[in-house]
C-alpha cells in the first residue's frame, strides 16, 4: 500500500466523514464541508447535522456501526433546504469508521444555491456529468416543446383548410359529410337542401371568371345569413351548395327558407359596373321520409328533386317524394 497522508482521503473522497466510535466527526471531505457547512465540521456529532432516513431506526453511533457496509440514505441541510445523500460506512475493529457520501441524483437540479464547483467532486465521480446531462436534457426538452407547439399550430391550420372551401370560406364536401354523419349518429331528424345556381354559366361566359367568383362569394354570404348558426352551408361543386338543417323537418318552415334563398340569390350582384343576375333551383329531402336515413341516398334524392325544379322552370324548390 502507498503511504498516503490525510490529504489523500480528502482528494479521493471529497464527500466523506471520518467518525470516531461515538459518532463524533474527526475529519471531513472538502466538498461535504462546503455543502453541509457546520454540520460536517470536525468535533460535531454526526447525528446533529445528518439524519439517517433509510434504514429506519439508525439514530446513534452503535446502530450506524451495525449497518457498516450496507447502503444508507441520509439527509442534511444544504443552502437552507434538505437534500438527500447516499452512502455507506466502512469501520475498523475499534469502531471508527469512514462514511462516504454522494448527492442523490434526484436532488441535483435543486442545488443551485449550493455554490458547487467542479473541484468539489473527484474526477471519478459522475456527478458533474450528471449535472451536465440534466441541463442538456432541459435544453433538448425546450426545443422539443417548441417544435411540438409549431407542429400543432400547423396541424390545426391544415385541418381548418382541409374542411373549408377556399373561394367562399364555406364548409366543403368533406366537412358536410362529417357533419351529416354526426347528425345521423345522434339520431336527429334533419333536412337537406340542395341548391344549384341558375344562369351562373351565363355570368361566367359573358362577364368572365372573376365575375363568377364574385357571384359565388355573394351567394355564399347570403346563404350564410339565411341559416341558423347550428345549420351548415357547404359548397359541394362549382355552383352547387348543400344546406343541412339539423332538427328542422317542418315543411312550412322549409318552404319559407327555400323562398328566401331564391329571393336572396336573385338580388343582383354588382361587379365591375355591371349587374350579375342569377337565380336558384332547390331540391329538399327530409330524414323523416326514411326508415334509416342514409346521407348518400338523401343527397341523391335531394338532387333528383333539384332536377325536378329545373325541369319545372327553375327559380323554385321541390321536396323529394312530392311533399308540400
Amino acid at each position: 500500500m502507498p503511504a498516503l497522508g490525510p490529504g489523500a482521503l480528502d482528494a479521493l473522497m471529497p464527500m466523506h466523514l471520518a467518525l470516531d466510535a461515538h459518532g463524533a466527526i474527526m475529519a471531513s471531505g472538502r466538498a461535504l464541508r462546503r455543502l453541509a457547512g457546520e454540520a460536517a465540521a470536525p468535533g460535531c456529532d454526526v447525528f446533529d447535522g445528518f439524519r439517517v432516513v433509510r434504514p429506519e431506526g439508525v439514530e446513534d453511533a452503535g446502530a450506524l456501526l451495525a449497518h457498516a457496509g450496507r447502503p444508507l440514505v441520509m439527509r442534511t441541510i444544504v443552502a437552507g433546504r434538505e437534500v438527500t445523500l447516499r452512502g455507506h460506512l466502512v469501520a475498523d475493529a475499534a469502531g471508527r469508521g469512514l462514511l462516504n457520501l454522494a448527492l442523490a441524483v434526484s436532488d441535483l437540479p435543486d442545488l443551485g444555491g449550493a455554490d458547487l464547483t467542479a473541484q468539489d467532486f473527484a474526477p471519478t465521480d459522475p456527478t458533474v456529468d450528471m449535472l451536465y446531462l440534466l441541463e442538456a436534457k432541459e435544453l433538448a426538452f425546450a426545443e422539443t416543446r417548441r417544435l411540438i407547439g409549431r407542429l400543432q399550430g400547423a396541424k390545426s391550420r391544415a385541418e381548418a383548410e382541409a374542411l373549408t372551401d377556399a373561394l367562399t370560406g364555406l364548409a366543403n364536401r368533406r366537412a358536410l359529410e362529417m357533419r351529416l354523419a354526426g347528425v345521423v349518429r345522434e339520431g336527429r331528424a334533419f333536412a337537406l337542401c340542395h341548391v344549384d345556381l341558375d344562369y351562373f354559366k351565363a355570368v361566367n361566359d359573358t362577364l368572365g371568371h372573376a365575375a363568377g367568383d364574385a357571384v359565388l362569394r355573394a351567394a355564399a354570404r347570403r346563404l350564410g345569413e339565411i341559416v341558423r348558426t347550428s345549420d351548415t352551408v357547404a359548397r359541394t361543386g362549382g355552383d352547387e351548395f348543400v344546406l343541412l338543417f339539423p332538427g328542422l323537418v317542418e315543411i312550412a318552415r322549409l318552404r319559407e327558407i327555400a323562398g328566401r334563398v331564391v329571393a336572396e340569390l336573385e338580388r343582383p350582384v354588382a361587379f365591375g359596373g355591371r349587374e350579375c343576375r342569377i337565380s336558384a333551383s332547390i331540391g329538399i329531402s327530409l330524414s323523416t321520409a326514411y326508415e334509416r336515413p342514409d346521407p348518400d341516398r338523401m343527397i341523391a334524392d335531394a338532387d333528383a328533386a333539384l332536377y325536378a325544379s329545373k325541369v319545372a322552370g327553375r327559380a323554385r324548390h321541390t321536396f323529394h317524394g312530392g311533399a308540400g
Binding site: G112, L116, E138
Partner: peptide, 9 residues
Amino acid sequence: DFHLGGATR
C-alpha cells in the same frame, strides 16, 4: 460566475 446546477433551480 458559474455554479454547478445553477440553471435548473
